[in-house]
Amino acid sequence: MATTPEELYLQSLDANVTPAEQARIRLALEQDVTFARTAVHYQRIRQHLLRPETATFGPFFPETVLQRIKNLKNAIDYQIVLFFKRYQLAAWGILVALLILNLALADQLSFTSVMGMEETTTEDVLTFDFLNDITR
């Protein structure tokens, strides 16, 4: 809440003030020379700040934006990102559900049991090695 005439004056520039507050500002402007000068300073600052002309990003800005969009659309990475963006919530949900399921079914709370790796046998590993040897 504005307490000093200066604060009240600043508030009056951006919002409605009551008739009583307007009268208080008017009185302060008439009686206090320093405050009157301060008010003029604020007016000058505001006049200089208000944008005189419209800003732009220069010529061909829409064309540049469109080119970037086309480049993005063409990039394979973009398609992958979009794919994951679309399904990331569902994927996270499934992952968490599977982990919880594994956790519930596991006999112990070790990393290997939760991740389902305790089911891996020596034969599985040897089979993989065997296949690698064949393809080499």
Binding site: T54, A55, T56, F57, F61, P62, E63, V65, L66
Partner: peptide, 12 residues
């Protein structure tokens, strides 16, 4: 592109 052209000034 028309949307970009219309709102460029405000964003700029």
């Amino acid at each position: 592109k028309a949307i970009v052209g219309r709102h460029e000034k405000r964003v700029a």
